[in-house]
Amino acid sequence: MKKATKLTAAALAATLSLSLAACGSSASTGTASTSASADGVVYRTLDEIKADGTINIGVFSDKNPFGYVDENGEYQGYDIYFANRLAEDLGVKVNYVSTEAANRIEYLQTGKVDVILANFTVTPERAEEVDFALPYMNVALGVVSPDSNVITSLDSWNADDQMIVISGTTAETYLTQNYPDIPLQKYDSYATAKSAMENGGVAWANDNTEVIAFASQNHGYTVGIPSLGSQDTIAPAVSKGNETLLNAINDEIKALGKENFFHADYEATLVDTYGTDYEDSLVVEGGETSAQ
């Protein structure tokens, strides 16, 4: 772990209870859905996806190291590594659809994607609108700030300052509910939030994995609050009522757990950012969070 994070392995472990083999192209629309849930949400069943031969997976294109487009225009990252294997085991090709945090639920409900694999934190509110599969990662919220003014607590926040957040994230929800007096500086994408942070931002609240990665990759920043709020999990999501696809993903996660797939995923995509000391704290194998 790079020195810029100013976190010890023990500190992070305590706060976190926490390949590119497919086509790699992005798209704005997917194959037309032919099924619907009781509330009118459209989706494609597992059989329909297999008949088409392509699964549409919503991922981030600007959230390194989880989902991003590299210098060759190819999708890479922790979520992509998993998505490639999922498509391979289902016997279909993968079509990547770039999404932003605020669009993830909409893309599922309108049939634009079959699955969301975009660092999607499980919450009760989201579970009312989509169906989450078993988790594959642990996460909490965190806050990163410049070394010149490291934010270690939100209890004495300067009312003249704004906190950077990304619309549609758990950070936005948590701060709105628990710190309503902190003004929020909202952005739609990770790229614009990072740019705002680099151009004089006071602090940025997001998944702690993301802010730790930012501090590791950018000199002059410290994660002063490594854990904020509850400990949560990251999981794939499908349209509400799409039981055949949900069951297939759950079966896949359980099977992959037997071969320690997500540890291999971590070592291939995340180890350069987080090091090996955090692997067991972040990774969930076979959907079994109790083992963490």
Rank of each mutant, 00 (worst) to 15 (best):
L117A: 13
A118G: 04
A118F: 12
N119P: 00
F120V: 01
F120K: 06
F120P: 05
F120S: 08
T121C: 08
T121R: 12
V122W: 11
T123M: 09
E125A: 15
E125Q: 14
E125F: 00
E125H: 04
R126A: 13
A127S: 14
E128H: 02
E128Y: 02
E129L: 15
E129K: 15
V130E: 11
D131L: 03
D131H: 01
F132Y: 12
A133G: 14
L134N: 04
L134A: 12
P135I: 09
P135V: 09
P135Q: 12
P135Y: 12
P135W: 10
N138R: 14
N138F: 08
A140M: 10
L141I: 05
L141N: 10
L141G: 09
G142E: 05
V143D: 06
V143L: 10
V144L: 02
V144Q: 06
S145D: 02
S145G: 04
S145H: 03
P146G: 09
P146K: 14
P146D: 05
D147R: 10
D147Q: 13
S148V: 01
S148H: 04
S148K: 12
S148P: 00
S148F: 03
N149C: 01
N149M: 05
N149A: 15
N149Q: 12
V150T: 03
V150S: 00
V150I: 10
I151V: 15
I151K: 07
I151G: 01
I151C: 07
T152Y: 02
T152W: 02
T152R: 12
S153Y: 09
S153V: 01
L154D: 06
D155A: 08
D155G: 07
D155Y: 09
S156L: 08
S156P: 00
W157I: 01
N158K: 04
A159T: 07
A159F: 08
A159E: 14
A159G: 05
A159C: 01
A159I: 02
D160V: 03
D160K: 15
D160G: 13
D161Q: 08
D161P: 00
Q162Y: 15
Q162D: 13
Q162W: 12
M163R: 05
I164E: 08
V165T: 07
I166Q: 13
I166N: 08
I166C: 08
I166A: 07
G168V: 03
T169Y: 10
T169S: 15
T170P: 07
T170N: 13
T170C: 04
A171E: 08
A171D: 03
A171I: 05
E172N: 10
E172H: 10
E172S: 12
T173N: 14
T173Q: 14
T173L: 14
Y174R: 07
Y174G: 02
Y174V: 01
Y174Q: 05
L175R: 13
L175E: 11
L175K: 14
T176R: 15
Q177Y: 07
Q177C: 01
Q177G: 09
P180M: 01
